[in-house]
Measured scan of single mutants.
Amino acid sequence: MDVFMKGLSKAKEGVVAAAEKTKQGVAEAAGKTKEGVLYVGSKTKEGVVHGVATVAEKTKEQVTNVGGAVVTGVTAVAQKTVEGAGSIAAATGFVKKDQLGKNEEGAPQEGILEDMPVDPDNEAYEMPSEEGYQDYEPEA
Rank of each mutant, 00 (worst) to 15 (best):
M1Y: 01
M1G: 00
V3D: 01
V3P: 00
F4R: 00
F4W: 03
F4M: 02
M5C: 01
M5R: 13
M5T: 01
K6V: 03
K6T: 03
G7C: 08
G7V: 14
G7H: 06
G7R: 06
L8W: 15
S9Q: 11
K10S: 07
K10C: 03
K10G: 00
A11H: 00
A11Y: 05
A11K: 00
A11P: 00
A11W: 14
A11T: 04
K12H: 06
K12D: 00
K12R: 14
K12W: 06
E13Y: 07
E13S: 03
E13N: 07
G14L: 12
G14H: 08
G14R: 14
V15M: 12
V15S: 00
V15N: 00
V15D: 00
V15I: 13
V16M: 15
V16D: 01
V16A: 07
A17L: 09
A17N: 07
A17Q: 07
A19M: 06
A19G: 02
A19E: 00
A19S: 02
A19N: 01
E20K: 11
K21M: 12
K21C: 03
K21A: 15
T22A: 04
T22V: 15
K23I: 04
Q24K: 09
Q24S: 12
Q24A: 11
G25D: 02
V26N: 00
V26K: 00
A27M: 14
E28T: 10
E28F: 13
E28D: 04
E28A: 11
A29V: 11
A29F: 14
A30C: 08
G31S: 12
G31D: 06
K32G: 00
T33G: 02
T33K: 00
T33N: 00
T33R: 01
T33S: 05
T33L: 07
T33A: 11
K34Q: 01
K34L: 10
K34I: 05
K34G: 01
K34H: 03
K34W: 13
E35S: 13
E35D: 13
E35I: 13
G36A: 14
V37H: 00
L38S: 01
L38Q: 06
L38N: 04
Y39T: 03
Y39A: 07
Y39W: 09
Y39D: 01
Y39H: 06
V40F: 08
V40T: 01
V40M: 13
G41S: 08
G41I: 08
G41D: 00
G41E: 01
G41W: 06
G41L: 03
S42A: 14
S42F: 09
S42G: 06
S42P: 01
T44K: 01
T44W: 15
T44S: 06
T44M: 15
K45Q: 02
K45P: 01
K45W: 15
E46L: 05
V48A: 05
V48G: 01
V48W: 15
V49C: 11
H50S: 06
G51D: 01
G51K: 13
G51T: 07
G51I: 15
V52W: 12
V52L: 15
V52A: 05
V52P: 01
A53M: 15
T54C: 14
T54V: 07
V55T: 01
V55S: 01
A56F: 05
A56D: 01
E57C: 08
K58R: 15
K58H: 09
K58E: 02
T59K: 01
T59A: 05
T59V: 10
K60G: 05
E61Y: 03
E61P: 02
Q62R: 09
Q62I: 10
V63M: 15
V63D: 01
V63H: 01
V63I: 05
T64L: 12
T64F: 10
T64R: 14
N65K: 12
V66A: 11
V66Y: 11
G67C: 15
G68Y: 14
A69Y: 13
A69H: 09
V70P: 01
V70S: 02
V70H: 01
V71R: 10
V71D: 01
V71Q: 09
T72G: 07
T72K: 10
T72S: 12
G73I: 10
G73K: 11
G73S: 15
V74R: 01
V74W: 11
V74F: 08
V74K: 01
A76P: 01
A76H: 10
V77S: 02
V77N: 02
A78T: 10
A78W: 15
A78P: 02
A78D: 01
Q79D: 03
Q79W: 07
Q79S: 07
Q79L: 13
K80M: 09
T81V: 15
V82F: 13
V82G: 02
V82L: 12
E83I: 04
E83C: 10
E83Y: 04
G84K: 12
A85W: 11
G86F: 11
G86I: 08
G86V: 12
S87Q: 11
S87N: 08
S87F: 06
I88Q: 02
I88V: 03
A89W: 11
A89G: 04
A89F: 15
A90V: 03
A90D: 07
A90H: 14
A91I: 09
T92L: 10
T92K: 02
T92N: 06
G93E: 04
G93P: 05
K96F: 12
K96H: 06
D98G: 13
D98F: 03
Q99L: 15
Q99S: 08
Q99K: 04
G101A: 05
N103W: 11
E104A: 12
E104D: 07
E105D: 07
G106L: 05
G106I: 12
G106C: 11
P108C: 06
P108A: 06
Q109N: 00
Q109H: 12
Q109G: 03
Q109L: 14
Q109C: 10
E110V: 07
E110Q: 03
E110S: 06
E110P: 07
I112D: 10
I112T: 11
I112H: 11
L113K: 09
L113F: 08
L113G: 15
L113S: 13
L113A: 06
E114M: 02
E114I: 11
D115N: 12
D115T: 09
D115F: 04
D115A: 13
D115Q: 08
M116V: 01
P117C: 11
V118W: 06
V118F: 09
V118L: 11
D119G: 12
D119V: 09
D119R: 03
P120M: 05
P120V: 05
P120D: 06
P120K: 05
D121M: 05
D121C: 05
D121P: 06
D121L: 11
N122A: 05
N122R: 03
N122Y: 09
E123A: 07
E123P: 07
E123N: 10
A124R: 10
A124T: 04
Y125E: 05
Y125K: 09
E126G: 07
E126T: 07
P128T: 11
P128D: 12
S129R: 04
E130I: 07
E130L: 07
E130R: 04
E130A: 08
E131P: 05
G132Q: 10
G132T: 14
G132L: 12
Y133H: 10
Y133Q: 07
Y133V: 05
D135W: 09
D135H: 10
Y136E: 03
E137K: 03
E137Y: 06
E137F: 12
E137S: 10
P138N: 05
P138H: 04
P138R: 08
E139N: 11
A140L: 12
